[in-house]
C-alpha cells in the first residue's frame, strides 16, 4: 500500500539529521557577490565573486542561514542570484539583449531589506516570477548604496524577438505582455503598494545613457 512505501521517505521536517529526500528546484542557481571597490583601481572581475551554486530547497536555506544578511553589507555591495551559467553582467551573451525590472527603496531605515531580498529570492527559486515557457528570468539582484537599496530582476529580452529565436519568437505585443506579467509578479513579491511603480529598462539603454538616467520603457 501507499503508506508502507511512504515510510521510507524522510524529509528534513521528519528528521533534519537523517533525511533521505530533498526538494529539487526547477533550475540550478548561482549566488554571486560584488565586493565594494577598495578605491585602488581594482577591476570588476576581481570584485565580482561566485559564491556557490545549488539546486535544492534545503541547500538554499543552508546557504541563506549562514551568509551575511544584506542589511550588514558595506555600501556598494551587491548580491546576485542568477541561473547557473549566466554571469550577472550586461556583457554576458544571455543578457546583452535583455533588461531589468527594478525598484529603489529610498527609506533605508523604514524597510526590512533582508525580508524583501529573501522574498524575491524565494519567488525566483520557487518559479513564481514567470511561467514555464516564458524563458525570461535570468536572475535577481540587490544593490546596497548610500542613499537607497535597489532590487532588480533581469530578463533575457526587452520584449523583442532575438536573432536566435526564429520561429518560436513572440510578437512584440506578446513579448511586452510577458514582460509586464513578470513585472507585476516581481512587484507582488516585493509587496509594494499599487502606487509604487517598478520600472523596466533595457541594459543597452542604461549602458548608453551615461550619466543621465535611462528612460523606463515599461512601468508596472
Amino acid at each position: 500500500t501507499n503508506s508502507s512505501a511512504n515510510s521510507d521517505i524522510r524529509t528534513v521536517f521528519d528528521d533534519p539529521d537523517n533525511f533521505n529526500v530533498k526538494h529539487p528546484l526547477m533550475n540550478h542557481w548561482t549566488l554571486w557577490f560584488t565586493k565594494p571597490p577598495s578605491g585602488k583601481g581594482d577591476n570588476w572581475n576581481e570584485l565580482l565573486k561566485e559564491v556557490i551554486s545549488f539546486d535544492s530547497v534545503e541547500e538554499f536555506w543552508g546557504i541563506y542561514n549562514n551568509i551575511t544578511p544584506t542589511s550588514e553589507l558595506a555600501l556598494k555591495s551587491d548580491y546576485h542570484l542568477f541561473k547557473k551559467g549566466v554571469r550577472p553582467e550586461w556583457e554576458d551573451v544571455q543578457n546583452k539583449h535583455g533588461g531589468k525590472w527594478a525598484f529603489q527603496f529610498k527609506e533605508k531605515k523604514s524597510i526590512n531589506i533582508d525580508a524583501l531580498w529573501l522574498h524575491v529570492m524565494l519567488a525566483a527559486i520557487g518559479e513564481n516570477l514567470e511561467d514555464e515557457d516564458d524563458n525570461e528570468v535570468m536572475g535577481v539582484v540587490v544593490n546596497v548604496r548610500r542613499g537607497f537599496y535597489r532590487i532588480g530582476l533581469w530578463t533575457r529580452t526587452v520584449g523583442k524577438a532575438l536573432p536566435g529565436d526564429q520561429g518560436k519568437g513572440r510578437s512584440t505585443d506578446q513579448g511586452k505582455e510577458v514582460l509586464l506579467k513578470i513585472g507585476k509578479r516581481f512587484k507582488q513579491s516585493l509587496q509594494l503598494k499599487e502606487s509604487e511603480a517598478v520600472e523596466f529598462s533595457g541594459h543597452t539603454d542604461s549602458a548608453h545613457s551615461g550619466s543621465t538616467r535611462a528612460k523606463a520603457k515599461f512601468v508596472a
Binding site: 528534513v12 521536517f13 533534519p16 526538494h23 526547477m26 556557490i52 545549488f54 530547497v57 534545503e58 541547500e59 538554499f60 536555506w61 543552508g62 546557504i63 541563506y64 542561514n65 549562514n66 522574498h119 524565494l122 519567488a123 527559486i125 520557487g126 518559479e127 513564481n128 513579491s189
Partner: peptide, 18 residues
C-alpha cells in the same frame, strides 16, 4: 514550483553550513 509559505517553513529547520 513552490510558494513562499511552503519555502519559509524550511528556514528554522535546516541551518547546516553548505
Amino acid at each position: 514550483q513552490y510558494d513562499k509559505d511552503f519555502l519559509l517553513q524550511f528556514q528554522d529547520v535546516f541551518k547546516e553550513k553548505p
